[in-house]
Amino acid sequence: MNEPHHNIVCFPLTPDRWEDLVRLFGPRGAYGGCWCMYWRLKRTEWSRQCGKENKRALQSLVDAGNVPGMIAYADGKPVGWCSVAPREQFVSLERSRKYKRIDPKRVWAIVCFYVAQSHRRTGVTVALIRAACEYVRSRGGRIVEGYPVHPQGKIRDVSAYMGTKSAFVRAGFIEAARIDDQRAVMRMYLDDEETMFSEMSD
């Protein structure tokens, strides 16, 4: 197991950091040419443009001034990524029966993580979640959601691309709903009064 890393800093992905993300994702675009476009596109679109076209689509978002997520650094090197945006920007998530909305509230969603193999299990994911929440707060958001896996045993890293429940708990999230026996909807209420109310209701 890698040692915990305490010198992690995270920033919104802006055009000046694009090449850092390219270096982090490598030639496979993180996972199989995804370039973190899996939830942003309809499944047919995502499959059709897997690889270079997905990369181009993500870069276009960044170049247009959108912030599709947070990038983490350790000792000046890019080591992790998470995707965060208003939920309605994730087309496939909105169309999903499994991940259907649990209420009509406006939420931001954290849907994807990628951490360099050398820095997995060192606290990068938790740092990214916390940084994403601070970014959402700065943009006026009030609720942040994640849909992590809660494995009963050991799983492959790629199977935890939406994060693990334990990481979200360490970042201060609470379980808002159960999706199935291995996955939950986790929420952070950035309004303290609403957080207290939710915790009392559980």
Results as ranks from 00 to 15, higher is better:
102 I>S: 09
149 V>W: 04
45 E>N: 06
150 H>R: 14
75 D>W: 00
74 A>L: 04
159 S>N: 12
139 R>P: 08
180 D>W: 06
44 T>V: 14
59 Q>Y: 09
166 S>K: 15
65 G>K: 03
171 A>C: 07
84 V>S: 06
77 K>S: 12
124 V>R: 02
163 G>A: 03
64 A>L: 07
101 R>D: 10
89 Q>D: 12
103 D>R: 04
60 S>G: 15
56 R>I: 09
124 V>A: 07
171 A>F: 05
76 G>W: 09
44 T>Q: 13
160 A>Q: 09
49 Q>F: 07
161 Y>T: 05
147 Y>V: 07
177 A>G: 04
159 S>K: 14
65 G>F: 05
73 Y>T: 02
172 G>I: 02
94 E>S: 02
36 C>I: 03
145 E>Y: 01
68 P>N: 06
138 S>E: 14
115 V>L: 11
181 D>Q: 10
107 V>F: 07
156 R>F: 11
131 A>I: 01
104 P>E: 12
101 R>M: 10
119 H>G: 06
134 E>C: 08
59 Q>G: 09
134 E>Y: 07
84 V>D: 01
42 K>D: 15
122 T>G: 14
120 R>A: 06
179 I>K: 02
77 K>L: 12
71 I>C: 03
41 L>V: 00
78 P>L: 01
85 A>E: 15
51 G>N: 07
93 L>H: 04
175 E>W: 01
104 P>Y: 11
139 R>V: 12
53 E>L: 13
108 W>M: 06
54 N>K: 03
143 I>A: 03
65 G>T: 04
148 P>Y: 02
143 I>L: 13
167 A>H: 03
101 R>H: 07
104 P>M: 06
142 R>G: 14
71 I>K: 00
97 R>M: 09
178 R>F: 02
111 V>D: 11
146 G>Y: 03
98 K>V: 05
51 G>Q: 07
155 I>S: 10
54 N>G: 04
173 F>A: 00
108 W>N: 06
50 C>L: 13
47 S>M: 08
132 A>G: 11
129 I>E: 06
97 R>N: 11
131 A>R: 02
150 H>W: 11
50 C>S: 14
135 Y>C: 10
111 V>K: 01
73 Y>L: 02
37 M>G: 00
158 V>F: 12
85 A>S: 15
135 Y>T: 13
46 W>Q: 06
131 A>H: 00
172 G>C: 03
127 A>P: 10
91 V>Q: 10
182 Q>V: 10
96 S>E: 04
179 I>A: 05
147 Y>H: 09
52 K>F: 12
54 N>T: 03
102 I>V: 14
99 Y>G: 00
61 L>G: 03
76 G>D: 09
79 V>S: 05
114 Y>W: 11
37 M>T: 03
159 S>G: 04
78 P>A: 02
41 L>N: 12
143 I>G: 00
181 D>N: 13
105 K>V: 09
52 K>M: 14
118 S>D: 15
87 R>D: 04
67 V>E: 10
75 D>L: 00
134 E>T: 05
52 K>Y: 13
147 Y>R: 08
95 R>W: 10
114 Y>N: 03
113 F>K: 03
164 T>V: 11
46 W>S: 02
146 G>E: 05
64 A>D: 15
115 V>H: 03
52 K>P: 14
84 V>P: 04
109 A>W: 14
61 L>H: 10
51 G>I: 01
64 A>S: 15
180 D>G: 02
153 G>V: 06
96 S>H: 05
130 R>F: 05
150 H>C: 12
